[in-house]
């Protein structure tokens, strides 16, 4: 197989993107949607570290990845809080029951 390191990794990153986006689009469950977002963030983290490795700019790439992880945690805490509040109101986390808002 004649593939560069960048080619190999980027193909897998794209596959992760496909998996995450698919799961967000198909699911009706709020927590599963958040898990889909998590998968996408994982793919992006891998891409950032890969870019740093290939260009030798690992210091900057790692700094970015670490900041990103901090944001990710805070984001998930707030998102979890909103999901729990929705659950307290509706008794469900199924988006099919949440169609009160018209887009």
């Amino acid at each position: 197989m004649n593939v560069s390191l960048f080619g190999l990794f980027s193909v897998f990153v794209i596959l992760l993107f496909i998996a995450g986006t698919y799961s967000i689009l198909v699911t009706f469950n709020l927590i599963r949607a958040l898990i889909g977002i998590e998968i996408l963030i994982k793919a992006v983290t891998l891409l950032i570290i890969l870019a740093g490795y290939l260009t030798g700019n690992l210091g900057l790439a790692q700094a970015i990845a670490i900041t990103l992880i901090v944001i990710e945690v805070v984001f998930m805490v707030v998102a979890g809080g909103i999901v729990l509040s929705i659950f307290r109101h509706h008794g469900t986390i199924d988006t099919r029951n949440l169609r009160d808002l018209k887009g």
Binding site: T45, I49, L50, G52, A61, Q62, A65, I66, I69
Partner: peptide
């Protein structure tokens, strides 16, 4: 990430 030398991250 370890294999890509990004040990701290």
């Amino acid at each position: 990430m370890f294999r890509l030398n990004a040990s701290l991250a």
